[in-house]
Simulated scan of single mutants.
Amino acid sequence: MPFKSFETATIEVDGNVSSLIVVHSAPLMRMGIASALRLFAGLNGRTVHQGGSLAEVSGAIREAGRGAILIADVSTWTALEKDATGLRDHVRETPIAVALVACADESAHRLLQLRGVSGVVNPECEARELELAISEIADGKTYFKHENRLAPTSGMAKLSSRQVEILELMTRGLLNKQIAWELGVTEGTVKSHVSAILEKLGCDRRTQAIAAFLQSLGVGTSASTPRQLNA
């Protein structure tokens, strides 16, 4: 899709932000985020690029420079982590800050920070919180508010940071050998961690562990389902 054909809206953003890119698979959520961004005051005019998938905003990402912020849902972040076309490298090397709109538990927050995500915003937050998150990230800080975290998914809190990282790579479809290469460890080390992950999560198969990880990110969580937040 040509760059000029993206749905755009002129908004005001902080001088530290060069551009904003909003990617969300749900059109109403995407429009809501853009509408919230338009409420920001006392800032310089910029254009926010919108799309329903990573492919739709690839041009905007490639043209983005330092100071850009990518606001995305979990599926977009997962696609970015799997990307083999150079987009992921561009985001990391530019660098472009990544903020996720997600309901994630504490274990997932640890992983997201480890993987370079700058912040997580609850999809049910007020516009003011989104503004605060963008402001913090624009200043080079991270935004992981304790009160926005879901209570730890059963078993996930028992995993070490390395095990959470391996579980995320499993979610991307990587085999033990590929995970070992990605992390610079032996395949035997990965196998040991995978066995420990399955035991701690009470799972018999990798697919069950992957489902538990996705639940920790809030994937599939209904907005109508009560969520217990950490105190």
Rank of each mutant, 00 (worst) to 15 (best):
S216M: 08
V17W: 03
N16T: 08
M29H: 00
V98S: 11
I166P: 01
L43T: 10
P152H: 04
E187T: 11
E182H: 11
L229C: 11
V101S: 11
L80E: 15
I61R: 08
P95K: 04
P2S: 12
N44A: 14
T171E: 09
V57T: 13
R46G: 06
R206P: 09
L159K: 01
F213P: 00
P152Y: 04
R128H: 12
A26Q: 14
A231I: 07
D83C: 10
I96C: 05
G119P: 00
R88C: 08
P123W: 08
G184T: 04
L169G: 03
G116V: 01
R149S: 13
L174E: 10
A41W: 04
F3D: 11
A138T: 13
V48R: 01
Q163N: 11
L175M: 09
L132V: 15
R172W: 01
H193C: 12
I61K: 02
E165C: 09
E63S: 11
A108S: 12
G140P: 13
F40L: 13
L100N: 02
S195V: 07
F6Y: 00
R66G: 12
A9K: 14
L174G: 03
L87T: 09
G116M: 08
N122H: 10
Q163M: 07
C103H: 07
A211N: 03
P95A: 06
L87I: 13
N16C: 06
A151Q: 14
N16R: 12
Q215H: 03
H24A: 05
T207L: 10
I96W: 02
L20K: 02
L39F: 11
A127C: 05
A138D: 15
L214T: 06
I33S: 00
L100W: 04
V74A: 09
G45A: 12
S192T: 14
Q208F: 00
D83R: 13
A72T: 11
G173Q: 09
S118Y: 10
G116Q: 14
A34W: 02
R110H: 11
R227L: 12
A157V: 01
V219A: 10
V74F: 13
F213R: 06
N122E: 11
D83M: 12
A133V: 14
R115E: 07
S154A: 12
V219R: 13
P152S: 00
A34E: 03
F213Y: 14
L39I: 02
G218S: 02
A36K: 10
A196H: 04
A60W: 05
T47R: 06
A196Q: 12
E182M: 12
L54N: 13
L167N: 03
S25C: 11
F3A: 13
A9I: 14
G52Y: 02
E81Y: 02
L111G: 05
T76G: 06
A36N: 10
A108P: 04
I21G: 03
G86S: 09
K145Q: 13
I179C: 05
S107Q: 14
P27A: 07
